[in-house]
Amino acid sequence: MTSLFSLASSFLTRGARRGTARVALAVLTLLAATGCNLQKDIDVELPAFPSQLVVECYLEPGQVPRLTVSETVPYLSSPEPRLLTNVAVVLTLPSGQKEAFRFSPGLDTLTQKVYTHIGRNALVAKPGDTFTLDVQDTNGRHVTGRATMPTVVPIEKVEWKFNDKTAEERKAYLLVRFQDNAATADFYRLQIHADSISENPNRDFELDDRLTNGQLVTLGTSYRYSANDTLLVTLYHIDQPYYRFLQSVDGARGANGNPFAQPAAIQSSVEGGLGIFTVLSYQRRTVIIQ
């Protein structure tokens, strides 16, 4: 049920083709003799693949900036992470002031997120401020990025409605409403976490305002929440490079394992490597389903 509703909503939010590809694969898999072992391990010799720097940096007002630098590795190589120790990171603030990050690998206890470099001061940023990032290693690899903080788009309303079932089958769907700005091309990401943001979001999708420009936008879920669930609803107003990055990551993941999908290159928001550099602008609401 949940997956099918995700499928349905994906026709609107992520493109019908990807949804159709999933339907096609599901039907063919169903048709192929179910129960037969139709998969096997194979040896694949991949061509040599030069590694690229990968940068992941989400600036957030009021937080000390943290950044993770890694590199791409051959797909079938060992999963052991390799810490890059020869990378210098410099953030340029809207004022032009440059701030060199410290190499200080650690774990953010709130988000359980690993970082390799950390800034020195809490970030001061307001919508419209532009930051630039410069990442270099001693091997000559050089990644640059530029990001502007979008405005915060407030959540106008979070509401839910239960079905007519009883006991354990009684579930609610959730609706989130916000007002889109007609004057600008806008991009959004909605995440719904249960209980804590360090857990996997149970709804996570991005959309643009191509079809909803200037309208009161309503996003919804299927009947999936129980009474007394605590939900953290986060609406990010994101820039287009971040939107494209998310879409391309989603496409790249989805193409691995679906013969109907066309694998797509990652559209990074940085140049000289892969990754994302953006300034977060979001509003979060916590609701208890009752």
Binding site: Q52, D108, T111, K113, E199, P201, P263
Partner: peptide, 13 residues
């Protein structure tokens, strides 16, 4: 896919 990288996302979740 010839290569891969790890993506932690905004909250490492």
């Amino acid at each position: 896919p010839q290569g891969r990288f790890l993506l932690q996302d905004v909250f490492g979740d």
